[in-house]
Design a protein around this nucleic acid. Structure first.
Lengths: 220, 220
DNA sequence: AGTATATACGAACACGCGTTCGATGTCAAG
DNA sequence: CTTGACATCGAACGCGTGTTCGTATATACT
């Protein structure tokens, strides 16, 4: 039997949630996120998914569902986290920030699979990864070919390494963020580069870097 | 602080349960299986595990806990690779290369668990990880707090990023390796630092860097 | 029309489950 | 001996969460 659109959506949400949080969602969590107000409707659709063999359910157990099949084994393993690899970061352009709600389910995204503990217990929501293109971020000690894992947010705390779009320079830069009495200081990780001071209105925070990975294989 | 026997047992049970069932256990499930009658005792011990950094908890959420640490279970899974975290890399000292045979299974070693594809198909033998201490490697764009995954070898090919012990300077440095007509050039990744030229006899290769990981969590 | 099936809603029920609190016992420090 | 940190227990509170039931709206087939 063909799955309805809603059932597919539920299935994808279970994938997504389990990967992000390390545990399966509850019926109500599913309902809220696919726009179903009644728990019984979610339950109804879950029973269909179960009959279709896509998920396994355990009765009267909270979060008692899990994905089955090859797909499920990989995604449902709470030790893994899959982060979509959404594009490149280049100096001359702002980072395109995808609509987190929809994009995570787009079919053909590449992704990076990491072990969850690499993220240091941080929230694993709104994460995405970018390939660094060019050496324009070298003042943040980030090089051509590196992968940065970012958390999408528009505010930052002092000391965070953020991707900031500097409006008048039309430029994205990765630097440490410090707010000081009406001025925002962007401090490069490498002290041989200069700190930039800009007005708050001239900066748009695009996200916070949570992980940098540099692979140096044979092709380095 | 050392963990009590009971806490270790709880930790192992969480690991076991999560792997088997695909979801974390509840407090009561833990209690039943390690012989604790009171949920508050389990809660008490979970708080200790959380402070020890072994698990992460989410408040007021059923099954809101997950492991953050690593252990032998991961070794059995071919998608994981567990790399012993053997110490620190400091400029003033050669890297201590441990006896791989014995140390890897010692209980008290920390380790890093990675997904195998991060290593880009490289041989996964003789790998070990080191914490970078201090900014002495900044000319390789490697900073205080980074984790470098190294492959132990005493030779290098041109272009490899190697840890090199420079004998007369009594110093370890991470640079790109180039052999040219009787001279070894050590080129920093950051072009604003200078290339070092040394005689082959004055250099001991200690290993090749295959991966650099920089975690920028809240504690960055 | 009448009937069956698929899909959806909201409410109510009962147990699941994290949280909190008071009480008890142990053991080393003061 | 007293104190305080540590570890444990049992019980109660209250929200979390799966389950069930009555109802409603389509669509298709009889």
């Amino acid at each position: 039997m063909a799955l309805s659109e809603r059932q597919q959506e539920i299935y994808k949400y279970i994938q997504h949630f389990t990967t992000e949080k390390g545990r399966p969602p509850t019926i109500r969590e599913i309902g809220q996120n696919v726009g179903i107000s009644s728990t019984s409707v979610v339950n109804y659709n879950l029973n269909i998914l179960e009959k279709a063999g896509l998920i396994a359910r355990e009765k009267e157990v909270s979060r008692g569902l899990r994905l089955t099949g090859q797909n499920g084994k990989h995604l449902a393993d709470p030790r893994f986290i899959q982060i979509p690899l959404l594009g490149r970061i280049v100096a001359g352009k702002p980072i395109e920030i995808p609509d987190a709600g929809t994009s995570a389910f787009e079919a053909d995204h590449e992704s990076v699979t990491l072990t969850r503990d690499l993220l240091g217990g941080a929230d694993s929501e709104n994460l995405y990864a970018l390939h660094v293109k060019g050496d324009s971020m070298i003042d943040a000690s980030i090089h051509d070919g590196d992968i940065v894992v970012m958390k999408h947010q528009e505010t930052a705390r002092n000391g965070d390494l953020v991707a900031a779009w500097i409006k008048d320079k039309q430029q994205t830069t990765l630097k440490r963020f410090f707010r000081e009495k009406g001025v925002i200081k962007l401090v490069p990780a490498n002290p041989s580069y200069k700190t930039i001071e800009v007005e708050p209105r001239n900066v748009a925070i695009q996200g916070k870097v949570v992980l940098v990975i540099r692979q140096l294989g044979a092709a380095a």
